[in-house]
Nucleic acid binder design. Structure first.
Lengths: 143, 143
DNA sequence: ATCGGGGTTATAGTCGCTATAGAGTCAAGC
DNA sequence: GCTTGACTCTATAGCGACTATAACCCCGAT
């Protein structure tokens, strides 16, 4: 029982870490250069080596990215997450702001969808000369 | 009556065209380099000059951008819009595809919004050490 | 003559990667 | 020991649709 089932032992190479976290090796290196991950320790020949600490940090980053957060926000969250005693309103603020951002974007896209709907239904023509879509896009001024 | 009310006479300088269309001068030059606009005619001293033809073309581009279309699609639409006799199903296809694209994006963002909602409501703590948001983002694995 | 507000070019930066080139490393099989 | 193939390293360029900057030129009004 409890055989480790394809999870490699620490330390991890970059490729193993990539497989463990679902973040590509190139992206991991990119995160290092972008100061989201600390400079990795290296083998004598220069290969990066990682421990479960970096693995967890990377998973944290990946979850934040999945929420649509930018790297700046993620850097802030990582920094904050180390200050266990600090008040967490800055954390709340980042998430709240992102929520508002997403909601705004949804509203914009819904308006867009309607407009595209209207446009798509408008065209019952055969040729471009009669096409209501092109006509609509070419309309003299309207605003 | 019928005084021209701040609409300058043709030909337009790039700045006048920018004001007429709501597209910044730098962007107009960018569109020229990107082959969305033909190379403008020039004054003796090298200033670009535009007519109502380019003004309308630029408005067309702006409307397409407002619909979220990429410059490649817009190039295609511009090319198509000159072929008055051609069938317009390619036009339809571009709009349709964009609609699907937008709908997919909305779905993604709505899922995101829910997740952010949950996260935001989860945090009733005072300090980061107790913060459910950070905790949730740091969770061991979950997938 | 000078000033402000235009215009011109070329180049680099934005964001979050992704792709490419060219080289070095490592374990396994022969 | 040698080769093979998978892996890793660095550095650089590209994506899309602009935006910003620098350094210069032009034009009309004072």
């Amino acid at each position: 029982m409890n055989h480790a089932c394809a999870t490699p032992p620490e330390p991890y190479t970059i490729g193993q870490l990539a497989r463990l976290t679902g973040v590509k090796a190139v992206t991991i290196r990119y995160y290092e250069k972008a100061d989201l991950l600390p400079a990795a320790t290296r083998t004598a020949s220069g290969y990066r080596l990682y421990s479960s600490v970096e693995r967890d940090r990377l998973r944290f980053i990946r979850r934040c990215r999945h929420l649509g957060l930018g790297l700046d926000d993620i850097r802030a969250l990582l920094r904050l997450s180390d200050e266990r005693e600090a008040p967490c309103h800055q954390v709340d603020a980042i998430i709240h702001q992102q929520r508002e951002h997403v909601r705004d974007r949804i509203r914009d896209l819904q308006a867009l969808e309607q407009e595209l709907d209207r446009l798509e239904r408008a065209c019952r023509a055969e040729t471009i000369g009669e096409c209501k879509i092109i006509e609509s896009l070419s309309r003299p001024t309207e605003r």
